[in-house]
């Protein structure tokens, strides 16, 4: 079913045996307003280490806002987010940036690859930002691209890639530094069914293989079907009675 196999090694992360039951991220009573619009109105959510969680809900429900708060991109007006014992919601911007760089990876709907850089250079960015030498960063990135079946694309720039290839390059970039948590916002939103399946097979196999926690915002049920569970955000609240 896959166009290529998931990587056998992920830099910096030892292979995991099984998802843990330990809470990795705990959000309590999250509120955030943009002007008069209340995007979140008291969200509680616990994310366990190694699980794949889908955040679903209609457009404008607050699901992307929730993802950005969990990832320390946005700061809530009220409430707390604790990641691995560290209270993200009270960190300053520099501390959150350091945490994101060291611990988190991100994938967005349109990949957000830098259009003037090759696929290989795009993937190596997080390693270079982390202080790794260019030579080593390129070697690691090339290895990861190879394990994602993208060796032939390494010198291509994003406009020369298909949608599915670009999204897999974005996935490699998100994973190359060995994050503990991967945040994905509509990662298959711009792809056709076949490319979506290839991206999600690769994403799910990779994060499960290495115990990376995946939090994925999606309106696509077929993407959510790769998750261990889902929560539904509606009107800024988690409305489903199935939050565990």
């Amino acid at each position: 079913m896959n166009s290529s196999a998931p990587p056998s090694t992920l830099p910096g992360i030892p292979p995991a045996t099984s998802p843990g039951a330990t809470p990795l991220i705990t959000a309590r009573d999250l509120h955030l307003a943009f002007g008069l619009t209340e995007a979140l109105r008291g969200v509680d959510l616990t994310i366990r280490s190694g699980e794949i969680l889908a955040i679903m809900g209609p457009s404008g429900s607050g699901k992307s806002t929730l993802l950005h708060i969990l990832a320390g991109v946005l700061v809530p007006d009220r409430g707390s987010v604790v990641y691995n014992g560290q209270r993200i919601s009270t960190m300053n911007e520099a501390e959150r940036a350091r945490l994101r760089l060291a611990e988190f990876g991100f994938v967005f709907q349109f990949g957000q690859l830098l259009p003037d850089l090759s696929a290989l250079d795009n993937v190596s960015i997080p390693l270079l930002l982390g202080g790794m030498s260019r030579r080593e960063a390129l070697a690691r990135s090339e290895e990861l691209l190879g394990s994602f079946g993208l060796s032939s694309c390494k010198d291509k720039r994003p406009p020369q890639l298909s949608g599915g290839q670009a999204q897999r390059v974005a996935l490699a970039r998100a994973l190359v530094a060995g994050p503990r948590v991967l945040f994905a916002d509509e990662p298959t939103g711009s792809l056709d069914s076949l490319s979506s399946e290839q991206v999600m097979e690769m994403l799910a196999a990779t994060v499960r293989g290495f115990g990376v926690t995946l939090v994925v915002v999606t309106h696509d049920a077929r993407t959510a079907a790769y998750a261990d569970r889902e929560v539904i955000v509606r009107d800024g609240q988690i409305r489903s009675g199935f939050e565990l």
């Binding site: 049920a221 959510a224 079907a225 539904i232 409305r239 489903s240 009675g241 199935f242």
Partner: peptide, 8 residues
């Protein structure tokens, strides 16, 4: 919501 959960 219950039906959505069952479908998923």
């Amino acid at each position: 919501d219950g039906q959505r959960h069952a479908h998923l």
